[in-house]
Design a protein around this nucleic acid. Structure first.
Lengths: 402, 402
DNA sequence: CTATTTCGTCATGGCGGTTTACAAATTAGT
DNA sequence: ACTAATTTGTAAACCGCCATGACGAAATAG
């Protein structure tokens, strides 16, 4: 038996909650959590002024959150100003944790992240999953999850949900993988194959990577385009701090944006898609390398050593990315473009031509392109944090499913 | 003196309102208005079950809305089922009206729309505005607005806001036109030049056209891409019923998406932008026609008469649009693409090649492409309705500014 | 050592939706 | 036709939630 699924990407604090006094209370609990979580230790009075409620109201909210184990009282603040010092409140580091899991092409990983955003436990298993069927892979993953959950519980932490990042398309119910080309999977119901008694959410690793960037990235704006390259080339569009999913959940397929409409044929039926120029296979071929095990590492290695063929291949890929991104930037007017996932490691050789192409085709200042600091860790962290965010977004919801 | 601007595209019912009991009341008033507006005449009990409040609560909300003149009691419903029949409630047809105004390249138009969505008064003036400076044009527009407002007031209606659609880029404050190439305008402050004592909002006509499609279109989904062609080729992205604006408000610049990256140079600095293939000028040139007055009418006329050169030019434009839209559809996964504005009139000759290109480049079922029924009326109606929606979204806000 | 400032809490009150009860208006059944 | 059942709208009592105002506590300023 698995618990009911929770929303992978809830629409912010209390969007769909009923507009009754209880709903109001729930939203205000969420506001307190967000304020404390975002702005470090805060006194009740500070929270009150931040969120626009009175000190009295905040007091009762905080009491409730402390009783639920979501907030902690750190003790009196060091008094710098006149007046009675406040009592510092912090998000609990010993309460609920979110479990993040990742099915990579070459590894499995699981971690537990507490409300403060710290990773408290992790487990990794290396080894390719390409071509293996879902059952044994997920059985292994289940083992890792059990280990991490046990470790967390041993520390007194309480796992409240699990989110799984997979390199493929996920159906809207957020439980089943529809297609994962790099694994060779076709319809795998994680709800059934991952027998863990926790609310489960599943999503594309590109999406979780983008969310990690949003939540953890230093200076990442609320409107940006996140480009990664695990399955082909996936982009994730974040608008006003929310992930754009698309009607069928397929948004962000940058890999099949036409770059040279009369170019080589693509598996999608089109011609000259970005993937034909900047996809893993294409770049390896252009660089004259054999597709081996660690494909990205291979490219980065040769490029770093000064292999001119590889560098040219990456330059050309950057140009193609620049063309595709010009279209995307024109359409969406994001505040930034962030290169994440595998692309982050190749950024030094991709960026110059990419930026040049983007600048050349843009009237006025071009959209800034930056590189994710999270790199390949993004998806796993994003998954774990999505559970944590769900708690911050609706603290009452967690407290009630004890 | 003009009144303070109101938000052109508020983020739905009660997004930013404070989460206090008064805010709750306001949001619930909005919910009642939305329910009645969307689902025709409804009894109090029906509203209650729709929005999840009790009949008693809805009663008091309805009382307040009736007192404010926003709702009307139509009398007892025809009893079909067992039980006491309810008293039908409808949105008031004699209360507030929204004023929509449009500065077109070849005309000015103003209309008043009541809460039921019916146009109650209108005024149009034909004649080109290309090259005229903002002052005389807006003076004329002001005259039209005054006439429509006077007519509405004579009928006992009360104008509560005005929204202006302009063929150009608008700054985020929603009052000033930054650039309108087809008019030759450069920084025009409508707040100052349109001295009407009503809350004012200004936006791109492509955006208002898309909103009209969203609100008035028959069967238009909440996630779609609206393509029009007034200034170059503007697209508007609607996600979950909300317009995507972009960081600087420049989202939707489909015209400069690269189609053939090595194609002819474009004013934007790039090469082979969509505008070079499907823009007004480009199509006229390809068709061997002189840019005259009614450019779109000219094209449509020749195409209807069977002019093979014109038809080929439009076919090619459709293909280019198809390529650009393939990218957009891949990125956004919308439920539909809607051709509006001038493109609607040319649709018969654009659509076949456009659809073919889109289908060819899409794995699986292609995104459906439809044609707006509103056509050139879209922007004006969208503007007026945006004011009406603002009332539905926050009825208390209107009632208070008597 | 006193005045001032700020914090957290308590008691009171108002506001808003729920609950419960009831009259009114209709249909279904005999 | 008359009663039972059902549904609607409203009124009264109630409860939950936040605001208001007052107070003690704990710091700084003079």
């Amino acid at each position: 038996m698995t618990a009911p699924p929770h929303q992978a990407h809830p629409a912010g604090p209390g969007r769909a909650l009923p507009d009754t006094q209880q709903g109001m209370r729930r939203r205000n609990l969420a506001r307190v959590m967000h304020a404390v979580s975002a702005e470090g230790p805060l006194s009740r009075a500070a929270v009150a002024s931040r969120i626009g409620l009175t000190r009295a109201a905040v007091s009762t909210l905080v009491d409730e959150l402390i009783r639920s184990g979501l907030l902690e009282e750190l003790g009196p603040e060091r008094p710098g100003r006149v007046g009675r010092p406040g009592s510092a409140l912090a998000v609990s580091g010993s309460g609920p944790v979110g479990i993040g899991a990742e099915v990579g092409v070459d590894h499995l990983a699981v971690c537990a992240v507490d409300l403060r955003g710290r990773t408290r436990s992790r487990a990794v298993r290396y080894g390719t999953n390409r071509g293996r069927s879902p059952e044994p892979v997920l059985a292994e993953l289940t083992g890792l999850v059990r280990r991490v959950v046990a470790e967390a519980e041993a520390e007194g932490l309480r796992p409240v949900g699990i989110a799984v990042a997979v390199p493929g398309l996920v159906s809207r119910d957020a439980r089943t993988v529809v297609r994962a080309p790099n694994l060779g999977w076709h319809r795998a119901d994680l709800g059934a194959l991952l027998p863990v008694d926790l609310p489960l959410a599943v999503d594309n690793e590109a999406n979780f990577g983008a969310l990690a960037e949003l939540w953890l990235g230093d200076g990442t704006p609320r409107d940006f385009l996140h480009v990664s390259a695990e399955i082909g080339i996936g982009a994730a569009v974040v608008v006003d701090g929310r992930l754009l999913l698309g009607t069928r959940g397929f948004a962000g397929e940058l890999g099949h944006v036409p770059v040279h409409p009369d170019g080589p044929e693509c598996a999608c039926g089109g011609r000259g898609c970005l993937e034909q120029y900047a996809g893993e296979e294409a770049v390896l071929r252009a660089a004259g390398l054999e597709p081996g095990k660690d494909r990205v590492g291979l490219l980065a290695g040769h490029a770093a050593e000064g292999d001119e063929d590889v560098r040219r291949a990456l330059r050309d890929a950057g140009t193609a990315l620049g063309i595709a991104l010009t279209g995307a930037v024109n359409l969406l007017d994001p505040e930034a473009v962030v290169l994440g996932g595998a692309l982050a490691g190749l950024a030094p050789w991709l960026l110059p031509s990419l930026r040049a192409e983007l600048a050349r085709r843009t009237a006025g200042p071009a959209c800034p392109v930056s590189v994710s600091e999270l790199g390949p860790q993004g998806p796993l962290l994003g998954a774990a944090h999505s559970v944590v965010r769900a708690v911050l977004d609706d603290p009452a919801g967690v407290a009630e499913r004890v």
